[in-house]
Design a protein around this nucleic acid. Structure first.
Lengths: 283, 283
DNA sequence: CCTGACCGATACCTCCAGGGCATCGGTCCC
DNA sequence: GGGACCGATGCCCTGGAGGTATCGGTCAGG
């Protein structure tokens, strides 16, 4: 199978519409139809059930969609990592790209970077700030070498991880809100707070789910919206270090504990990544 | 990047010879040379240092070799798993392929299969016996769904695992050999036993390393060769259950402990694999 | 019930890139 | 210095990827 065929199939499987998928791929619809049916013939499997009105995935199609995404990530990773290796030998020397959610784990990250810089054999660390839930994809596609992510929110399947820190969660509220008078709250107290709808994060495809809350991209934005009295948010305790005036944190006693982990692709061979992980675990 | 390019590069990187690589790929040498240099141009990286007498990998080339193998495994896995999913819906129903070293972990495997068959919702298990060290590759390329392997010998990077059993190792000797009189031995006692050279296992490419010992493919062969007085072998204790007449096991006190683990690809979504793993852990 | 919109499949054509053959240029060994 | 070896280059050809036009089937609306 060629990656082109996998890209075509993923496009159709995601759009469930040959015309839109073809547009997205920048080709016409007929060659796309042919490519898919040729793929089905070669695999000896029906991947899509088409009528002239709809396209649906079969069981085998769902399997291929899942596997093809992983395979395309691996191919993309090969490309990115090779480019980075070449850049390292050419000029600039080696560097590590660390991905983390914008605005999260600030204190831990600062400590880690300081500690690693003090290590013998340290290399420059490029910090790549990304949207929530994107770190795994950056690692799997080779654009980052190592990442900080947060269980149980981020998906760590297929990644090697070490736990760094486990903490409870707090709700961040605008100062003066009635809930700030409480010593602690439960999650149930935070649903349907009439004047503070929960924020909406972008879905993996870049669009936003419907709802009353404001659309946000990162934590800085988010905290500003909280201080403006537009929303509330439940975050790990360490967010207290970033609280400006006008923001109050109240413990949420029944929110799941959040574990910050450092993660890297399982077959990483980079000495620098290993050193960075060791430094992180020792913090 | 297309998988064709990756296959071409892997062939050249492994052979370090354009002509041989082209023969292996079933094409002529000139298109191969062109494909590689086109790949290098597109990546903006020199992958191979060629003189008219030799070909050597650059740093970036070594990275790409490693990444390309993983990516090609992922593509192959997509193909195999899709075919299997289609076969499951077509006829025969779902099944699980379990890979294990031929002749190893016999007792554990039998118990596992019995226990799993008794579970509600059990599905047929196809047991795929393979040479040592091949289980990981079978999992990564999608030809098996789950495998038993042995740390620290087998490579488990990139696989999810659960530990099942840790045991010491024994040396299996022909009955009557002078070492069988000892209550235990050290590894040092087993090197250079003049009449019992260690066996030679096939390398990943199918060839055998040089040496005096007999060439073997699996444990059954191996034990027969031991009973014939041709070799000796260090194996986990559980091999005692398979010892026929003419074979004696003596504990090796300083051999590393062997842990039998059950492993599966990290993004496995199969219900049956999860059930099988749960059954195995409960044993 | 009919018409038009929509959508995937098919027919047919074009064109380029992947592959083969012949040969060159450089290196090493006898 | 001649021959063997090896990767690169030039040139040609063919298969297949992609485009356009159109078909056939389904559904909604009048």
């Amino acid at each position: 199978m060629e990656t082109r065929e996998l890209r075509y199939f993923v496009a159709v499987a995601e759009e469930l519409h040959f015309g839109r998928a073809a547009t997205r791929l920048g080709i016409a619809q007929p060659p796309l139809s042919r490519a898919i049916s040729q793929l089905e013939r070669r695999l000896g499997a029906v991947l899509l059930e088409r009528t002239s009105r709809s396209v649906r995935l079969t069981g085998a199609g769902a399997v291929l969609l899942h596997e093809a995404r992983a395979a395309l990530d691996a191919v993309e990773a090969a490309e990115h990592r090779t480019r980075r290796a070449a850049a390292a030998t050419a000029g600039g020397g080696p560097a590590v790209v660390l991905a983390t959610k914008a605005g999260a784990s600030g204190e831990l990250l600062a400590k880690l970077l300081d500690a690693f810089a003090a290590e013998p054999g340290a290399v420059p660390v490029d910090v790549l700030l990304c949207g929530p839930g994107q770190q795994g994809r950056l690692l799997r596609s080779g654009r980052a070498d190592v990442a900080l992510l947060h269980r149980p929110f981020d998906d760590t399947t297929g990644l090697d991880t070490e736990e760094l820190l486990t903490e409870g969660q707090v709700v961040v509220l605008p100062a003066g809100h009635e809930l700030t008078l409480r010593a602690s709250v439960h999650l149930a107290d935070l649903t349907d707070v009439p004047d503070l709808p929960p924020p909406r994060w972008p879905l993996p495809d870049g669009t936003y789910p419907p709802g009353p809350g404001p659309e946000v991209l990162d934590h800085t934005q988010l905290l500003q919206l909280v201080s403006l009295g537009r929303t509330l948010v439940v975050l790990p305790e360490s967010v207290r270090a970033q609280l400006r005036e006008g923001l109050v944190a109240v413990p949420v006693v029944d929110a799941p504990a959040v574990t910050t982990v450092i993660a890297w692709p399982p077959h990483s061979r980079s000495r620098a990544v290993a050193d960075l992980v060791r430094t992180a675990v020792r913090l």
